[in-house]
Design a binder for these strands. Structure first.
Lengths: 333, 333
DNA sequence: TTGAAAGCGCTAACAG
DNA sequence: CTGTTAGCGCTTTCAA
């Protein structure tokens, strides 16, 4: 809060104009003579005037703040996503308030309450499943919100993201087309993420194509992936390929293989999901699915601002994602 | 902005009390009879009343929002840091607005302007070098701020973080004590980070201990580290150890070694800086310096809130950081 | 313990 | 093109 900055009244006094005029030039400057404009701007600069945001928000009923609630920021995908939102919003004069829910509905609700009580004009939520209380709260106040990281044309709420189930299917098919018939799917906690669930559902729908298609849940971290894959390797599971529903897990798989003396892709194939920055650098380079984390942030950000400014309804939007073939999946003969 | 929520007046009407009384119970409830209190709280719940933050901020001149400007969010260290700040702030009823400066002073200034114009009560800045304009702006408005990721007892501004130069020295000494006399230091862009500069300065001050102590600047990414180390390996630089001023760079070094057929630590040693989550999982586990990213976020967050609530001055604070010995540094005989 | 009333700084009709 | 005048919703003396 600019406790000591000049107020609009100071600028009015300084220029001998009314506060209304000052307000006009500060906000776009329509219907103001060029000379007055100059004079006002000059005085603003001299006094280092910064409009009081609370007063402005109180008057306009808009804060120009949008809230994003994400499950975690410690995965690059979310970090990239947030960076994109911040950038897109910032370019349009909006700010981002961030809350982290730790994949907990109660925490998410509490965060939303706080952010609403902070004046957020719109909300960006992750995934598709949220407490009814949260959605009600937003609906009642007519605060626009969008679900992200998912795309569901049938949803009543706008979803901007990708088709998790579809992409998982493609990944599975890719493995199948390379001759793999015994694959292990390694994924993060199901309860925490409807996206993970969707991916599993997608993969499972194709289980008929395989001799074995096993699912393993493990903490969503390099350590989790490593431990999980290490275990199956030790058990002699005999999978020819590991499909990891996150590159982080895939990196763990790499390390597990290194520990077990298995070569990728000669001995086992590994496929990821995310296409994180290092996926092309790892040895061998990781075949994975490129998720448009940054593009998704730009897309929601832009839509939200558009919605706030023109009242255009938010629309579901499918972002392109695709398999990036690199060197971690062998073609079995 | 809660355009449609009930206002304090609605609650007053509902209960037959005055807005002043409602305000009292909503804010702590001092000097209110227990019965009235109950009645009011009840009405609030029934009407789903949420105080209008803009009105409150206008009246109290505090927004309960703190701003953090970081160079990037795409490095886990910063992501962890931000997560900790958000958590600490949230627990105390404060919110976090985030801006990303891309290590650019002009962008940082613009962001600060925006956030100030958004009503931030305090600022958390990264590093120690900032444009005078920014610092002036904050000082003039008496907005408290702290520098982070650095610790400098001599600074006039509060710094909460660690001693970059000192830690770099320790790392270098560690390598020296293991018999390394030809080491390459791999670091990110100097212009972007005074912390990187401090680390380099610290390391350089010990160059007398070595036969060769070379410095290489590369983009701060796995790809950057890989390319840089790959190049020196190809050139036959003959370094027995690589000290990377970020674990991200170290991971790149691992991949470069894999490509070049060099074994770690038998052929070359690698040491990191950060202690990211996967540092213990990589093969061989990475010897690195553990930076208290999370603890640092908690520390600034707590101090800022304390300062805002009690006017206690912000104080510089040194956070513990230390070498974590794992398996990537060989002892030369 | 409660209420009346004066703002906080800005915007937005409405006049002129 | 510019000024007057109401508020926006809440907090906070000051009285009662």
């Amino acid at each position: 809060m600019s406790r000591l900055g000049a107020s609009i009244r100071d600028v009015a006094r300084e220029t001998g104009l009314s506060t209304a005029t000052i307000s006009r030039v500060v906000n776009g400057g329509t219907r103001v003579s060029e000379e007055t404009r100059k004079r006002v701007l000059d005085a603003c600069a001299r006094l280092d005037y910064l409009p009081n945001p609370a007063a402005r928000a109180l008057s306009t009923r808009r804060s120009k703040v949008v809230a994003a609630i994400i499950p975690t920021i410690e995965h690059s995908v979310f970090a990239k996503f947030i960076a994109a939102i911040e950038r897109t919003l910032g370019l349009r004069g909006y700010s981002l308030v961030l809350a982290i829910s730790n994949s907990d509905e109660a925490e998410e609700l509490a965060a939303a309450r706080k952010l609403l009580g902070m004046g957020a004009d719109a909300f960006i939520l992750s995934g598709q499943t949220h407490s009814g209380a949260l959605l009600n709260m937003l609906a009642k106040r007519q605060v626009p919100y969008a679900h992200t990281s998912v795309w569901d044309p049938d949803s009543t709420c706008p979803t901007v993201g990708y088709d998790n189930a579809g992409l998982a299917k493609e990944a599975v098919k890719h493995l199948h087309s390379h001759g793999h018939r015994n694959v292990a799917i390694v994924h993060g906690p199901l309860v925490e993420s409807d996206r993970t669930q969707a991916r599993c559902d997608g993969a499972r729908s194709l289980h008929g194509l395989f001799d074995t298609l096993d699912f393993f849940e493990t903490p969503l971290s390099v350590a989790g992936g490593k431990a999980c894959v290490g275990r199956t390797l030790a058990d002699g599971g005999g999978y020819s390929a590991y499909l990891c529903f996150s590159d982080v897990l895939a990196l763990g798989a790499y390390f597990a293989c290194a520990d077990a003396g298995k070569r990728i892709p000669q001995d086992v194939s590994v496929m990821g999901f995310d296409n994180l920055d290092w996926a092309a650098e790892v040895v061998p380079p990781l075949t994975t699915i490129d998720l448009p984390a940054f593009g998704m942030g730009e897309a929601v950000g832009a839509q939200i601002v558009e919605c706030l400014e023109t009242n255009a309804p938010l629309q579901s939007q499918l972002l392109p994602a695709r398999i990036i073939q690199r060197g971690s999946v062998a073609r079995l003969t």
